[in-house]
Amino acid sequence: MSTTVLILIIFGAALLLGAGALLAYRLVRGHMPHFTRKALGIPYAVFLIFFVIAPMLVILVYAFTDRNMHFSFANFVKFFSDPTKLSTIAYSIVIALITTAVCLLIAFPVAYILARSKMKKKYVILMLFVLPMWINFVLRINAIRELFNWIGLLGEANYFNTVFGMVYDFLPFMILPIYTTLMKIEESLYEASADLGAGAFTTFFRVTLPLSVPGVVSGVTMVFLPSMTNYVVSDMLGNSMVTIIGKFISEYFASDWHMGSMVALVLLIVVFVSTLLTGGFKSEENVRGANL
């Protein structure tokens, strides 16, 4: 409770300080300061510095220091000379790739059918797909665990269960962006395609698919990245027999923050590279159609 009070006091003090500064400015200059649009960005900049940049720097510092906070490459060397850690990254990437592929295979047809259908209440169906997101994720994974237990899959196929749980969990993140981009395709484009003599098949591959790429890219990013680290799923549905990179980070942070930070840093780089990869497609506007 006292922490809450402290935070409130800090916020209150900041507000008072701001108001005081304004008042002081007015007293000295005789008018209120002129705010440019840039000034409105200050709170965001402060937020980013405190909650994004500073933590990353802390991770960086921890990753390259040893127990006594002396600069050291030991963790770096240890990480890249340990076949287990490299293998775990590989496993995580493979699990994430499979999850993403399965999500895409399910989500695209769903989004396509919903976007193209003339149904009046199609948003209800869309809602049904998104609805699970409103329920706490741990609760849902627990429910799946019970379900698998009942079927008899629990403990028999740990990797399958993990991927299943991830797909179940992240499917809405794939459906929504694809649905949105598909909805944005104007009807006239389909008409033009038909006018030019294209059949349904050609229209899909030459019009619909290329135009939905931005949605697919954002869906892939939103599914791929979290499924590399969501170890609650692998613990609950894989009986902790499946280890992904997120689990490593959590375990190391119990005892060795320096190695934990190094693993987190490596993951950050993997994420960065994969974002670059998907972003690389996006920025090349002119080849968008040709690529797919």
Binding site: P83, T84, K85, S87, T88, A90, Y91, E251, S255, D256
Partner: peptide, 24 residues
């Protein structure tokens, strides 16, 4: 603690063969 944690991570996680890591 460091040594046993390493051991534990080797037990918990799968380790690929050297050639697989090279390919990777």
């Amino acid at each position: 603690s460091e040594r046993i944690n390493e051991l534990w991570s080797h037990v918990k996680a799968e380790t690929l063969d050297a050639w697989a890591i090279a390919v990777l």
